[in-house]
């Protein structure tokens, strides 16, 4: 289970938090001018990244404040915590070898894992 660093309360167990989905989805200010397809893009379409992903969490059983997180969805590595309204920091060294690939260590998916030293 995740240990999540709440920016206000410190490191707490995943159970204290609720998930808020993809971060940085801004509601369009000109919704009246949008086509159905453009509105559908805002309401429904999602980035759903495999790799470094910006998402929202809320400390529901604690301070009840929202914050943003960068997590690698292919390995569950928490990379950064930052405030609502802030921009995410740049992250290096988390790229996947191929689009559907796994990081070398840390993923539960053995289908395409390469163990260090066995790269061949």
């Amino acid at each position: 289970m995740f240990l999540i660093e709440c920016p206000y309360c410190g490191e707490r167990d995943q159970r204290e938090f609720s998930y808020g989905g993809e971060a940085h989805i801004a509601r369009p200010e000109n919704s009246d001018d949008l086509s159905d397809a453009e509105w559908a893009d805002y309401v429904f379409m999602r980035t759903n990244t495999k790799g470094v992903f910006a998402e929202r969490w809320v400390h529901a059983a604690g301070c009840r404040k929202w914050f943003n997180v960068l997590r690698n969805t292919a390995s569950d590595t928490f990379l950064a915590v930052y405030g609502v309204g802030e921009q995410p920091p740049e992250i290096f060294g988390q790229d996947l070898a191929t689009p559907s690939g796994e990081p070398v260590i840390g993923s539960g998916n053995d289908a395409t894992k390469v163990i260090p030293g066995e790269e061949g």
Binding site: G21, N48, A74, D76
Partner: peptide, 13 residues
């Protein structure tokens, strides 16, 4: 599990 993920594993909760 409520969070997005591609790891094929989830939390014990």
């Amino acid at each position: 599990d409520a969070h997005l993920g591609y790891t094929q594993r989830g939390g014990f909760n």
